[in-house]
Write a protein that binds this DNA or RNA. Structure first.
Lengths: 354, 354
DNA sequence: GTGAAAGCGCTAACAA
DNA sequence: TTGTTAGCGCTTTCAC
């Protein structure tokens, strides 16, 4: 049957601890208990006390399933991310969860691992659990899935892409600012051969970052197609990307990476190749995850606050109509950038006369 | 009312999409639909097809709240961790979630931030959501909270501590092995002044690691109380711990840290003090989180597989009775350990004759 | 201000 | 094999 005694412990005491039990114990109706639980003002003070006491004594907790069923609201938000192993996402989740709890919502996390079928599964789960909103932080999603969510009228919020559906909010990120600051910083240091290790372009954010890099580099007259290389937003991707770059005839003297862990991979790879950072090669990351500050040397990177994104996401889900402020990005200079070596400079001259 | 039309999109089409709608569309009873959804074998093939088609066409998804309410099983497991920002936990969560999905369970994550009231909130939430089991990975919990979970008969699994309650499983970790390997490694390299930066002792795991260190160091005759210092399992804790150690009169030539991020903090701090690693000071972490391999130099550490722990946790929740294999820990030597400098050696001699 | 009663969408007896 | 039906625990009218 539905409700066999759940006591596995052997205690037979908690045969059933529902609103009815509390009502009986307090000598009121279940409606009154419900009102007290939901802090409705229309309950006589002395009854409030009695009910509260009964609740405490019995250790009653509301069954949210039942509540959700009747009220139609699950009080859960879904968050879909691509890779919980990339430290940017835990930071974001932490922010999201704190804000969500603040306003009485649970957070259901789905991780896609950059895998489309996993993404489908996530969406399915969110639908099944009847989340009251979902934040899609994967920086990319397939149209049909989006439709399924959308057709259920579930509020959604994205980072960084604006599907043309209604009830979908977008958090815009100003990549241009941080990235052009980075390029400017490098140029002022004397670099001309500046590379970019991109993420996979099907991720909207990766594409946007590359685009920002291209235009910033072009604006400074130092963009070269062959200096763009592709990783996958993981450390091994960064490693590979750097290896590719180092094989180039006129290897770059500086490289900007599409995210921090890519930069960390690149750092590792450069150092294994015998280069010192920043003397032989300058490096800039993106995201400013906490660990960048602790790298040796500390990584120069571009801040994009996960907490800012999280808090905008929660408010978008809570009040679908209101417009969201754009998230800024800013260069934070640490110690992985310096002027290029002299021999690099002369190499540069050579390459230019070529 | 309970069920106002959820369509915010303006489409009036999805007035209500429940099992009844599907039943009507397929020309069968709701029981049959339920059977098909739950893949029960007792449905005539042609009806299976008809129902499946209706489901697909209508885009029906099961309401898990309703299912949970009647079946008494939510098909969710809770995982409580202390700090999602410590990369060990995302790795663990990832493993847990994958295993859970595999067996048809959702994962509800609660993060306590080492805060007791947050822990209470987490437990409360898990109770409310009627999770079918909870894995407590905080490496520590207060008794009374434990009782609340326990009295509900919810299966639980802990890492590394064995409360005397029933229906509570414990995953044992063999800290001694990895840690004594680490101490031996250091001793063989010639170190005698070996420090330990511990985590907070109210975390069971931190206490266990310290204990393992003490006995290993004692066994080699190189344990000194003043070489034990306390962090808090964060990078800044590691930083502070190292600062303390460096102020010591006969500063240690090697330090083992209670977890990797502590070691990363310590590394940073040592390097900022002008020491090179490992020439001036050797460093060993604990956990072997992915990033350790990418540090410069790559961090020598002790592996404790989050995935091992995760998979044991899931099976413990799934089948409460069966005993769990102990999780091993093993030293993995990378590049933050080497013999102490000669001047350190002589300093050591001085300190010994003292 | 309080209680009785009608469901929310589903599963699982039980009957046919 | 299929359908009918009684709840699961709760919120929310509506009458008192």
């Amino acid at each position: 049957m539905a409700n066999q005694n759940k006591s596995v412990t052997g205690k037979g005491s908690n045969a059933r601890l529902d609103i009815r039990t509390v009502a009986k114990a307090a000598g009121v109706s279940i409606a009154t208990v419900s009102r007290v639980v939901n802090k409705m003002p229309t309950v006589a003070p002395h009854l409030q006390v009695k009910v509260a006491e009964a609740i405490r004594k019995l250790g009653y907790v509301t069954n949210t399933q039942a509540r959700a069923l009747v009220s139609g609201r699950s009080k859960m938000f879904g968050v879909i991310i691509s890779d919980i192993t990339n430290p940017f996402f835990p930071e974001l989740i932490q922010g999201f969860e704190e804000e969500a709890i603040e306003v009485g919502y649970e957070t259901l996390i789905g991780s896609t691992n950059y895998d489309l079928s996993r993404m489908e599964l996530c969406v399915q789960r969110m639908l099944e659990r009847k989340v009251d909103g979902v934040a899609i932080m994967t920086f990319g999603i397939e149209e049909p899935l989006l439709d399924r969510l959308s057709s259920q009228g579930i509020p959604m919020v994205f980072v960084d892409m604006a599907p043309r559906k209604k009830n979908i909010a977008t958090i815009h990120v100003d990549y241009e600012k941080g990235i052009s600051e980075a390029v400017a910083h490098l140029c002022e240091l004397g670099h001309r051969r500046i590379s970019f290790i991109s993420g996979p372009l099907r991720l909207h954010s990766a594409a946007a970052r590359l685009k920002a890099f291209k235009s910033a580099a072009r604006a400074r007259g130092c963009f070269l197609d062959r200096y763009v290389v592709y990783g996958d937003h993981t450390m091994v991707g960064g490693e590979r990307g750097m290896e590719q770059l180092l094989r180039l005839k006129n290897a770059p003297t500086a490289v900007i990476c599409s995210n921090d862990i890519t930069a960390i991979g690149a750092m590792h790879s450069a150092s294994r190749a015998g280069l010192s950072i920043p003397e032989d090669i300058s490096l800039i990351g993106f995201d400013n995850v906490q660990i960048t500050e602790y790298m040796l040397p500390p990584l120069t990177t571009i801040t994009m606050s996960g907490r800012d994104i999280a808090s905008r996401a929660v408010s978008a889900l809570l009040s679908p109509g209101v417009p969201l402020r754009t998230v800024e990005t800013t260069l934070v200079v640490r110690q992985t950038t310096s002027g290029p070596r002299l021999r690099s400079l002369s190499a540069r001259r050579t390459s230019r006369t070529r």
